[in-house]
Amino acid sequence: MNDIPAHLTEEVHLAFPSRDNLAIEARKLDFFYGKTQALYGVDLPVERHKITALIGPSGCGKSTLLRALNQIYDLYPKQHAVGRILLDGHDVLADRKSLSRLRERDGGGDDTMVRSPIDIAGLRARVGMVFQKPTPFPMSIYDNVAFGVRLYQRKSRAEMDVIVEKALRRAALWDEVKDKLHSSGLGLSGGQQQRLCVARGIAVEPDVLLLDEPASALDPVSTAKLEETLIELRQDFTIVIVTHNLQQAARISNHTGFMYLGRMMEFQPTEELFANPRGQRTRDYVTGRFG
């Protein structure tokens, strides 16, 4: 890095919740697409059974941060993260390559790091994800929901029926699909497909559910329904949602982080951030002056 972009030296306003009750946490996270750095030392504490929203203009790194939390970037060999991600105190970025990158950046001999690594399948079992566009698998509604469960457990037909029904009920989809569980998930409407993806994600009972602009492809009615669902789900899960829709963040989230060009500029309780933003950039963004 020759030039330090201006925003990297700007003051940030971070009012993080206490660390006692975090489900997942990113600490000083850098992220790289090849040689391009997309995240700069981002901290993100996510409180348990709360909804944390990430907002910011396009390209600010909110999706990148979300995708780092469950290491889905792992599919692409040129992408990597440096820093720490803690799931319930377990280190997610604990493979040898990540550790050596961390040591290279922060220097060795940091004994405060208590290493209790978690493997990637274990991580993904506990951190579910819903994507921007609905991604139903090419199989029946029932099999879509059962897909994740079958990866980890062998269940009898009756037990699986219970799990599938419960997940679909929690995703507020049961009443609409209970008579056609064995027809294709691809036949549902966009909003239904997205709630099917939510049901699929929660059927494995993850701790954390990550949602990457889940409503951006949905009409207002479907969006409202999805939001209701998310608020309900807060009782059982911890939710992190990336959204371009500021009203959505304001309506459903407890904490909101504002990101800008790869940096967490402001993090506040949601009402606080929208009513009384501390940073100039945050103020401009939430009042619609840019973005």
Binding site: L75, A121, L123, R124, G128, M129, F137, F147, G148, G201
Partner: peptide, 13 residues
């Protein structure tokens, strides 16, 4: 779509 693969991987497959 790559999202389809990611969705599968995100479940831990």
């Amino acid at each position: 779509p790559s999202a389809l693969r990611e969705a599968g991987m995100a479940l831990g497959a």
